[in-house]
Nucleic acid binder design. Structure first.
Lengths: 179, 179
DNA sequence: GTCTATATTGTGATAGAC
DNA sequence: GTCTATCACAATATAGAC
């Protein structure tokens, strides 16, 4: 059983992903979470508090995820390229929502994103032992995230690379490791 | 001498890049453009009209840019990786602003971005003759754009790759062409 | 073409009942 | 802990003078 707090944060995240920050009125978030606006404001005293709580959640989830970085270079690259922007994944949807906040001028969100990205890069660089391939994999992952964020539905005519394309990209990056 | 219309669109673009859609109130845009709110609304009858005019500008500028795609595969890759998100460039800043609008749930902006990205991909794939490397270069470019958008200042501790890194990435991608 | 009001609505936040 | 008012203000848009 999830707490009301969690359900409200989930709704906030969903609203950001669906319509950007523009649509995240307290009314809309409360309705999506199944509470009244007053109920929402009992748990989060202001909209700023809602945002900073989402950023805390991002850091927590990214730390849990950090423990799962594969040790084999190939697997680390594969993880970055092939699982980026899986919107069903909790960490990824929190990350995408936070990124949208960062692009809307919230310095605290930009700071959190920088921290998480830096952590990902460090672990990827360590796992691969190749800073350049690590950077390429990270940027490709960011590109996939970005396209996924713009193209929510993703029904056919999308910019998001297919599973086959991602696999081919992974193989290409791995081949660069063996230079 | 630029027209008032252009100056207002420039201001709108600047405000989006500086603070996301959130900060682009008619007051703020008008002040930035050096006109009154009423003056702004004479040229653009609504905020929607302001947005759709920016998207028209994006398509125009991307078509002008299309003529400049290099013929050599190496140069085409280099252009994508090394000139992405040069915010001083007119096309790039219009693109970044439109991307922010797309991430805020505006379907018309998402559609325009898709069109432009598809056009870029097609030309890059043609110039390189290698769909996979074209896709990688495009995603890396998107990743660089994305980081540049989150990190406006970019003073040292940023995620945006340095000029040296970009050059190395270009070389790596070019090496993949010769398989 | 550009301005100064002003009308109108949307939104964040408070107060207090239950 | 959750709700229903309600307030205060910000933002879009209109009307009409200059």
């Amino acid at each position: 059983m999830s707490s009301a707090r969690d359900r409200i944060l989930d709704a906030y995240e969903r609203q950001i992903l669906a319509g950007g920050e523009r649509g995240t009125t307290l009314d809309a978030v409360a309705a999506d979470a199944g509470v009244s606006k007053g109920g929402l404001l009992y748990h989060f005293s202001s909209k700023d508090s809602l945002r900073s709580s989402l950023l805390e959640r991002l850091v927590e989830r990214s730390q849990i995820d950090a423990a799962e970085m594969p040790q084999l270079p190939e697997d680390a690259v594969r993880l970055f390229v092939e699982s980026s922007a899986d919107t069903a994944d909790q960490l990824h949807s929190t990350f995408l929502a936070s990124q949208t906040l960062a692009r809307n001028g919230h310095a605290d969100a930009a700071e959190a994103i920088r921290t998480v990205e830096q952590g990902w890069y460090d672990r990827l660089a360590e796992a691969t032992g190749d800073p350049l391939v690590a950077r390429m994999a990270q940027l490709i992952g960011d590109g996939i995230y970005d396209n996924a964020a713009i193209d929510p539905g993703g029904d056919g005519f999308t910019l998001t690379p297919s599973a086959e394309e991602r696999e081919a990209i992974t193989e290409a990056l791995i081949s660069l490791l063996d230079r």
